[in-house]
């Protein structure tokens, strides 16, 4: 646990000293959401419902940029080799990378969800719950993203390969998150809410379990 603390300390300090990058990432997510908001007529009754999907898309896009960067900088500076050659357990490295990414994505999410209410309408009372749902969805997304971020890190086509690998895997999370966001944020019930929760938690568990198990092999060369 002490080592995990040091890994998080290192990532947090690095992140805090490059705040301009975090600001750019939030801006990117906001611009994506604003652009998508123009896809619907201003008076459309479907706006709150579609907004639930659009906010998730913006979170996924911003997360992909973060997954890519997380390992790219470690490889570029040679520190990933340093970590691989150290007595550190690969599971700890995975967990620390995933938690550091989660922190960044949480900031993006906390900024985006209230804006969804602004641009797409819906229930103000549901914003808190909607942030929680988006974070729960992001947890699974981040597990897969950290794994595949490490896989494609040194590939020349990483920018394209990462979404190709990642997006199909997060379809269950996407279905669950959008269903729940539509309910809590848009006040629209899309099928069973309890099934949405079950789907989200089950696929989060699957994403974390599989990623932790596979990460050691991914790091190996």
């Amino acid at each position: 646990m002490k080592r995990l603390g040091w890994l998080l300390w290192k990532d947090t300090l690095t992140e805090a000293r490059s705040l301009e990058r975090l600001g750019t990432l939030v801006l990117f997510a906001v611009v994506t959401l604003v652009t998508l908001s123009f896809a619907l007529p201003p008076d459309s009754t479907a706006r709150p419902l579609v907004g639930a999907g659009f906010v998730w898309i913006a979170i996924v896009f911003a997360s992909v940029l973060e997954f890519r960067r997380s390992f790219e900088s470690e490889r570029k500076d040679g520190t990933l080799d340093g970590l691989r050659a150290s007595p550190l357990d690969s599971t700890l490295l995975f967990v620390s990378k995933a938690l550091s990414t989660f922190l960044v994505v949480a900031i993006v999410t906390a900024a985006l969800v209230p804006l969804t209410r602004l641009f797409f309408g819906g229930r103000t009372a549901g914003i808190g719950a909607a942030i929680g749902i988006a974070l729960l969805g992001a947890a699974g997304l981040i597990a897969w993203g950290t794994l595949f971020g490490a896989v494609v890190g040194s590939s020349r086509a990483a920018d394209v390969v990462l979404p190709i690998l990642l997006f199909p895997l997060v379809v269950p999370q996407t279905i669950a998150v959008v269903r729940l966001l539509a309910c809590y944020l848009g006040g629209v019930t899309l099928g069973s809410v309890s099934t949405g929760w079950l789907l989200l938690l089950a696929f989060d568990g699957l994403a974390w379990g599989t990623s932790v198990l596979l990460f050691e092999y991914v790091l190996d060369e």
Binding site: K10, D81, L83, P87
Partner: peptide, 30 residues
């Protein structure tokens, strides 16, 4: 691994941390 010290061709330092912060981090990892 704990008994090996590696100085690779690339310095393997975190660029946003100071020299001593790097040392402190790697000491803790080991």
């Amino acid at each position: 691994r704990r008994r090996i010290g590696i100085a690779p061709h690339m310095p393997a330092l975190y660029p946003r941390l100071s020299a001593f912060e790097n040392i402190r981090f790697w000491s803790a990892v080991y």
